[in-house]
């Protein structure tokens, strides 16, 4: 083996990672070649310098900065989660009002097409809604929070409008009844 071939093996040799015939060849070459021996000594010097690199200790300030940031994120997430519950409540109220309103107006609230769907198709629709919600969740906390509050506000607005409409309808009927007006 010539010096170039030896040099290619020398890094692993100095790391103690070379075994068998290769290690034996390097050892034999080093015994007779002062140049490669000097190179090996230098690489060994590099290795011992690297061994002096001790693990460093993370500064306490960095640790406490992270912990306070984590607490802020946690609190924001809990608020967003509470927003989800509130949104669910508002949506349920809105749906009830829509159903009640449509029912009072004599319109079937559930499209007949939906009833004709197979249960598998309905299942798909519901699971798609679920995965959309999950994806919204996977986004940043700010985005999640913003989307949920926007949706909740929309749902509340819708619920209020429906409530007003239902009340108006109710009083219109009573007045009509009282004055024997046929609508």
């Amino acid at each position: 083996m010539n010096c170039d071939e030896i040099k290619a093996l020398l890094y692993e040799y100095c790391d103690g990672e070379l075994t068998g015939a290769d290690a034996e060849n390097v050892r034999a070459h080093l015994a007779g070649c002062a140049g490669c021996r000097a190179l090996a000594a230098e690489l060994t010097g590099v290795n011992s310098l690297l061994k002096t690199a001790s693990p460093l200790r993370a500064p306490d300030a960095a640790v406490s900065n992270v912990l306070s940031e984590v607490r802020t994120i946690s609190a924001r997430r809990k608020r967003a989660a509470a927003g989800v519950h509130w949104l669910g409540f508002a949506l349920a109220a809105a749906v009830l009002l829509i159903v009640a309103g449509l029912d009072a107006a004599g319109i079937s609230p559930i499209p007949a097409e939906f009833g004709r769907l197979s249960s598998a198709a309905r299942e798909t629709i519901f699971s798609n809604i679920g995965s959309i919600m999950d994806r919204a969740h996977a986004h940043s906390d700010f985005f999640t929070e913003a989307v949920f509050y926007a949706k909740a506000a929309g749902a509340m607005l819708m619920a209020c409008l429906l409530l007003v409409a239902a009340v108006e309808e109710h009083f219109a009927r009573r007045l009509a009844h009282k004055f024997h007006i046929t609508r």
């Binding site: 890094y11 140049g35 490669c36 000097a38 190179l39 230098e42 690489l43 010097g45 590099v46 290795n47 310098l49 690297l50």
Partner: peptide, 19 residues
């Protein structure tokens, strides 16, 4: 990368390296 890096360190640590 490790081998090349060590080779550079070797040159930095032993500026008068013959090889």
């Amino acid at each position: 990368y490790v081998f090349r890096g060590k080779d550079e360190l070797r040159k930095v640590l032993s500026p008068g390296a013959a090889i």
